[in-house]
Design a protein around this nucleic acid. Structure first.
Length: 596
DNA sequence: ATAGGGTTAG
């Protein structure tokens, strides 16, 4: 018996499970047999006689399992799979899909599987990772082949920036006992680090250690670099030690990451730690390279220790190591923050004489330096210079200038730059808007602020925590803390995480309005949401109480912050001096702290 | 497949 094959609907799919539930499969197999056998079908597919295939197929849904069972060439299987999906609108189950992929793996047709999976993860209606792994687990008996598929899938997720799915795939692979390779795990770690999900990167690394994974140096370096970027220097050094224990020698990249971490960590004596690392490199016979020097030079420049930076610069030259544009950009930035613009400009000329081309970053540094030294028109001219040089202006070029104009209250010029960047095809980002919003906030022109926020939304740019903090600060400074609180709710609705700054700003606003109760409520809220009061929180509250001459309360808060081990900062001591001692109240705190 | 430079909030 045969169903008429007039339409897709009548082709067998219609029917059986509802006539004979539970017997659907066998009923189909014996009664709605294909009018065409698997090998003939394969033959037609190989010749790409698609209209013939279409005409002779009685039950398209059955063709694929039939071909799989008859051991048809995997290449033809795939070809039929893709064709039937596109031309017949069939959506094959995950199980069948992965059985096809498995047959390709068995024939070592790896590139085909790779490109298939690449497409597969780009799918608009993605399958859940768990259902995909279930399909992988049943597509074969060979754990080795299943591992290969899982590994390729993970790489596809990662390459397509589906890091969350990649992460889940990593753990599922572990649950099923599949073995992954550094080819997919290193890029996963790299993505996690780039997305600042350092906790996840660390967990993946720990899991790899637990699974006795076959590492290479890159695995360790990626994790160490991520930890350094997150400022977790102790953990980074621990991983470097583990690396040694597992038989790998840290290389120049490992050390450069650690050096950069220490340079950026700040704190007193950080450069001694850097020095210790350099000495360890020397002991291990690892020469410093240009990145090492650049990192250290940049560290000193940020400290405004130009002397030390120039000493290293000199050392480089003595070793015949050629500085590059990055070296110069750091030094130029250093001179700019030292208000030595003449020297900064001279370095740009030196670059040219060495055959190094100043790039857009060089110009951005110089423009920023000119702006910070109040030379806005010179900075504006330098933007034109950069363009004349044929350098592509970056969004940062514009942001730097827009911010400078905004900070000088020259909003018309700021807006005209905003227009100019649009004309030049440079796309504004959240920072661009934040600079403009900051400018209007400082002028109290809230109507323009709302207008900018609306414009952002229109462009699909989401306000970030800086946008919110800026606006909240302005509202608080204009006696509208209550409206600031409404924005706090708005942040949460838009899944923007408030920071200490957000809460502290609101508290300060309420304190200025004399509403201490509301300020304390904000602190409660902040702690309820897992943010502990910090030094600034206490400074704000102590000052608020002092202003209302509630000295005992202020004193109690001061003691509370000491009990919590919070460090008093410059602002704290100023408050103590100006709001307490000068007004005749001597706080009862430890003498040594008071003397500090 | 891993390292270095430029912009925004208290």
């Amino acid at each position: 018996m045969r169903f008429p094959a007039k339409s897709k609907l009548s082709g067998g799919r219609f029917s059986t499970s509802f006539l004979f539930p539970g017997k659907a499969q066998s009923f189909r197999l014996c009664c709605i047999a294909q009018s065409i056998d698997a090998s003939t079908l394969a033959e037609l597919v190989s010749k790409q006689h698609w209209s013939e295939v279409k005409r002779r197929l009685r039950n398209p849904a059955l063709a694929l399992p039939q071909m799989l069972d008859s051991g048809v060439d995997p290449g033809l299987l795939l070809r039929y799979f893709v064709w039937s999906r596109k031309e017949l609108g069939l959506s094959h189950s995950l199980d069948l899909t992965f059985r096809v992929l498995h047959s390709l793996i068995c024939s070592k047709m790896y590139p085909k599987v790779r490109s298939f999976l690449d497409q597969f993860v780009k799918d608009d209606t993605p399958h859940s990772v768990s259902s995909v792994f279930h399909a992988i687990s049943t597509c074969s008996d060979s754990i080795c082949n299943k591992s290969i598929i899982a590994d390729m899938l993970l790489l596809s997720y990662t390459k397509n920036m589906k890091t969350r799915q990649g992460l889940e795939a990593f753990y599922r692979a572990g649950d099923y006992g599949f073995n992954l390779s550094i080819l997919s795990c290193n890029p996963l770690l790299n993505n996690l680090v780039k997305e600042r999900s350092i906790d996840d990167a660390e967990r993946v690394y720990r899991e790899l250690v637990r699974r006795r994974f076959v590492f290479n140096a890159i695995t360790f370096n990626t994790v160490i670099n991520g930890l350094c970027k997150a400022g977790r220097l102790n953990k980074a050094s621990n991983v470097a030690e583990e690396m040694k224990a597992l038989g790998f020698s840290p290389n120049v990249i490992t050390y450069n990451s650690l050096i950069d971490g220490h340079c950026k960590a700040g704190g007193p004596g950080k450069m001694y730690k850097v020095d210790a690392i350099v000495q360890e490199m020397a002991r291990n016979g690892i020469p410093l390279n240009v990145v090492t020097y650049n990192t250290m030079i940049h560290g000193y420049c940020k400290d405004e220790n130009l002397q030390a930076a120039l000493k290293l610069f000199d050392e480089m030259r003595k070793q015949d190591m050629m500085p590059n544009a990055i070296t110069y950009n750091s030094l130029i930035g250093g001179f700019c923050s030292n208000r030595e613009l003449d020297k900064a400009l001279r370095l740009r000329d030196e670059m040219l004489s060495l055959g190094l081309s100043p790039n857009i970053v060089t110009y951005n540094v110089l423009i920023g330096g000119l702006c910070k030294n109040g030379m806005l028109s010179e900075a504006r001219m330098m933007l034109d210079d950069a363009e004349t040089e044929g350098l592509g202006l970056s969004v940062i070029t514009f942001n730097t200038l827009i911010d400078a104009y905004s900070k000088s209250g020259r909003m018309e010029e700021a807006l005209s730059l905003h227009q100019l960047m649009h004309d030049k095809g440079v796309v504004p980002n959240v920072s661009t808007y934040n600079c403009l919003i900051g400018g209007f906030c400082r002028e109290g022109k809230m109507a323009s602020v709302w207008e900018l926020l609306r414009e952002m939304k229109e462009k699909g740019l989401n306000a970030d925590v800086i946008s919110y903090n800026t606006v909240i600060d302005s509202l608080c400074n204009h006696g509208m803390s209550r409206r600031g609180m409404i924005l706090l709710d708005d942040m949460l609705n838009n899944s923007v995480n408030p920071t200490h700054i957000t809460y502290n700003t609101l508290m300060e606003g309420y304190c200025k309005e004399g509403n201490l109760r509301a300020a304390l409520k904000v602190r409660e809220l902040m702690e309820k949401r897992g943010r502990r009061a910090n030094t600034v929180t206490y400074n704000v509250l102590i000052k608020g109480f002092c202003k209302q001459s509630k000295m005992e309360d202020a004193n109690r808060l001061l003691n509370e912050m000491l009990e919590k081990g919070l460090l008093l900062n410059k602002a704290t001591f100023e408050i103590i001096k100006e709001e307490m001692v000068e007004k005749g109240f001597v706080p009862d705190i430890d003498g040594h702290l008071y003397n500090a």
